[in-house]
């Protein structure tokens, strides 16, 4: 049985941005030509710095935004950029893809009790479920994420960041989704709380056979969580592969630089840091050719002329003319 839950082919999302009142509109390619697949029970991590398109990817996969082009298959439903979904399809998809946001302080409605927050998804999508049953489900979910039943009537401001993130996870799970998009789920949390939430996520995945699309900039967390890794730079996937391969033998210069720039909590480690010059380019005005060429130490004339493509046939593909 094929248990592929997400299948993306050439997924893109462009925004039209107007500069000033009468300025001409520019197109920002927040996400271009991303292809990947994700199976049940597995974790695909999306890694990159700000502006690399990882959050846009999360928004497209959770259907907050329509893709501009490309194909996306979520749990057997095809989403195409040219035909909007019917209401029934949307409802089906909502039940299978849910999202957990980075900031647990912004993602819970401050004026709703935990019970109402948890019940809202059921109330909206399954109106046939009785009130008592809804409450029962919410209370069970509280227990599942490690909170106590009496938290049901409390408001979000009474909880710490870690507890709120548990609530956010609980809400995402209320519709029994098969895919969970985790948008930097632990980067707003303290270290001691971070490990609690990571453990919770690992256990939930094992128990419910969830597929995780794990978006993060923290490579040590990604290394711990991910089965597969996709490295993005300025809206493009530059490298993709099994986590161990990408971390141990990075092929794209950017991946290599990113790995070496990440501080490691080991003062005795020899530092062989690749020093990247310059800033991240603006997505409004990307450099010609390979987006990474102005900062790359291996860049040659060819890199400035045309952008290398990712060969999706390979097991560990890389979008670079001179891979390491």
């Amino acid at each position: 049985m094929d248990n592929t839950l997400i299948e993306a082919r050439g997924l893109s999302r462009h925004y039209d941005v107007s500069s000033g009142l009468f300025g001409k509109t520019a197109t920002v390619k927040a996400l271009s030509n991303a292809s990947f697949s994700l199976q049940a029970g597995r974790t695909l991590a999306v890694v990159g710095e700000s502006g690399c398109g990882k959050s846009t990817l999360a928004r497209v996969v959770t259907m907050i935004e329509q893709p501009s082009s490309g194909e996306l298959t979520l749990d057997g439903h095809h989403i195409r950029s040219d035909e909007p979904l019917t209401a029934a399809q949307q409802a089906d998809l909502r039940a299978s893809v849910q999202i957990v946001f980075q900031d647990p302080f912004g993602s819970l409605n401050p004026r709703q009790t935990i019970g109402r927050i948890l019940e809202e998804p059921v109330l909206i999508n399954r109106p046939q479920v009785s009130r008592a049953e809804r409450e029962q489900q919410a209370r069970e979910m509280l227990a599942m994420v490690g909170l106590r039943p009496e938290h049901y009537d409390r408001y979000p401001h009474m909880f710490s960041g870690g507890q709120r993130q548990r609530i956010a996870v609980a809400r995402a799970l209320m519709l029994d989704p098969r895919i969970l998009v985790l948008d930097e789920p632990v980067s707003a949390l303290d270290l001691s709380i971070q490990s609690q939430i990571l453990n919770l996520l690992v256990e939930l995945q094992e128990r419910l056979n969830l597929a995780y699309l794990f978006i993060s900039h923290d490579l040590s967390v990604v290394r711990h969580m991910a089965d597969d890794v996709m490295v993005m730079y300025l809206g493009r996937v530059v490298e993709k592969g099994a986590a161990s391969e990408v971390f141990d033998t990075p092929r794209h210069p950017y991946t290599r630089a990113l790995l070496s720039a990440t501080p490691v909590a080991d003062p005795t480690r020899e530092q062989t840091r690749i020093r990247l010059e310059g800033e991240l380019p603006s997505p409004l005005n990307p450099p010609a050719g390979c987006a990474f060429n102005p900062r790359c130490w291996k860049a040659e004339e060819r890199c400035r002329q045309s952008a290398p493509e990712l060969d999706t046939q390979e097991a560990h593909p890389v979008a670079c003319y001179f891979p390491l």
Partner: peptide, 17 residues
């Protein structure tokens, strides 16, 4: 733009809601 509004949208809340 706050996340709790987005998550209500992801869950499928109608515009009136």
């Amino acid at each position: 733009p706050k996340d709790y509004v987005t998550s209500a949208r992801v869950v499928g809340a109608s515009r009136l809601r």
